[in-house]
Simulated scan of single mutants.
Amino acid sequence: MNDERARGVGPVAHGSSDDPELLDFSANTNPRTPPGVADVYEDALDRAGSYPPEPPNEYRETAAEYVDVTPESVVPTPGGLAAIRLAIALAVDPGDSALVPAPSFGEYAREIRLQGGTPSFVSPEAIVEADPADHALAVVCNPNNPTGEAIAQDDLRTFARRCRESDTTLLIDEAFLGYTDRPSMAGTEGVVVARSLTKLFGLPGIRAGFAVATGPFGEAMRNARRPWNLGAPALAVGSHCMRQGAFVEATRERVARERERMREALATRFDVHESEGPFLLLEVGDRPVGRFVAAVRERAVAIRDATTFRGLDSHVRVAVREPEANDRLLEVLTDV
């Protein structure tokens, strides 16, 4: 990365509303947080007068148990995006090409461009069929944001093998995998997994996540990670959340049940994508998306204008929230 490239690569549009008067369906974070978070945060804040341990071994051990890997392969990061940036910075040199899903999270392409690389876009469902040869990096978002589809484990493993044979780093963003019962690819040779604690545990402001990488690339990531890159509250709260198995299971069941209920109701008026994430992508047809979003907002509900995702020009994304809130969204979307 250099200053000239950074000046030429602008920010990516993201969802979520900070208006407390709106019922927010534009952000796809859990409306619930695990029990005990406030107490853990308060206790950790009392210890914030000194630097946290370096490396943060307790956090690494908890994350390792969370995704069933060795603690040595865990690289703590302040959120999943920091893990993505670190992996891309190490994998992509100026002039390199990288396979990137589209439509998907816009930060992948942005980070590649910041390193002087060129994103080569492939549809999310077809990216594991693409040829990784001549690409320094391949990115998979599983489940994909904003479409919601997930890729089968066997297909991911086959693609990972082809990436190894091509000497291509495979980065898998599992920010939403916790909403499914699919196994993580963490610990797979040649694969870097990025995990976020933002979405599943409803704590975007804590900024806690991690990467998992093995072999020489894992060593490079551990060496390149900034020391003290997570504060004491983030380490303590993150460790606490990853131990809350009952909360995770209850969240999966609630989101799956509500997502299907919402999909069935919305399918009477919109084309609705199948999803394994905590959100649904809706095609609104020939109605101008901006006007549609504004009309919903006039009813005190915020939804995500999905035209900010590459390749989408007539779509919105809605989160799956609590049943009562979901009822309000359905009422507005079937009437506006």
Results as ranks from 00 to 15, higher is better:
Ala294Gly: 04
Leu90Lys: 10
Ile303Ala: 02
Asn145Ile: 04
Val74Ser: 05
Ile88Tyr: 08
Val284Ile: 01
Ala194Ser: 15
Arg32Met: 01
Glu260Ser: 12
Asp327Met: 01
Arg287Trp: 00
Ala234Ser: 12
Thr214His: 10
Ser97Val: 03
Leu281Phe: 03
Arg310Pro: 10
Arg164Gln: 13
Ser26Phe: 09
Asp181Lys: 15
Arg304Asn: 10
Arg207Pro: 02
Pro78Glu: 00
Ala82His: 04
Tyr108Glu: 06
Ala38Asn: 04
Ala109Tyr: 10
Pro204Asp: 01
Ser120Asn: 15
Asp271Arg: 07
Glu4Ala: 13
Pro227Trp: 05
Gly15Thr: 04
Met221Tyr: 10
Pro119Gln: 03
Gly49Asp: 07
Gly106Asn: 06
Arg310Asp: 12
Ala89Val: 02
Asp181Phe: 14
Arg110Trp: 12
Glu42Trp: 07
Glu149Tyr: 06
Val193Gln: 14
Gly80Tyr: 05
Val272Ile: 03
Val37Lys: 06
Glu283Leu: 00
Ser73Glu: 04
Ile151Phe: 15
Leu170Thr: 11
Ala91Ser: 12
Ala130Lys: 10
Cys163Glu: 13
Ile151Ser: 15
Leu230Val: 05
Phe279Arg: 00
Leu22Gln: 11
Ala48Arg: 15
Arg5Val: 07
Val296Thr: 06
Thr268Arg: 09
Glu174Lys: 11
Thr77Arg: 11
Phe25Asp: 00
Ala133Met: 03
Leu280Met: 06
Gly95His: 13
Gly245Ala: 12
Asp327Val: 06
Arg182Cys: 02
Tyr108Thr: 08
Gly205Asp: 06
Thr77Ser: 09
Asn142Ala: 11
Asp131Cys: 12
Ser184His: 15
Val296Ile: 07
Gly79Leu: 01
Leu200Thr: 06
Val67Asp: 06
Ser196Thr: 11
Asp46Gly: 13
Asp134Leu: 06
Glu322Thr: 14
Leu200Cys: 03
Leu200Pro: 05
Asn2Gln: 01
Thr158Ile: 08
Leu22Trp: 09
Ser196Lys: 07
Tyr108Asn: 10
Glu129Tyr: 12
Gly231Asp: 14
Ala133His: 14
Val212Cys: 14
Arg207Trp: 03
Phe176Met: 01
Thr118Val: 13
Ala160Leu: 05
Leu312Ala: 06
Val192Ala: 02
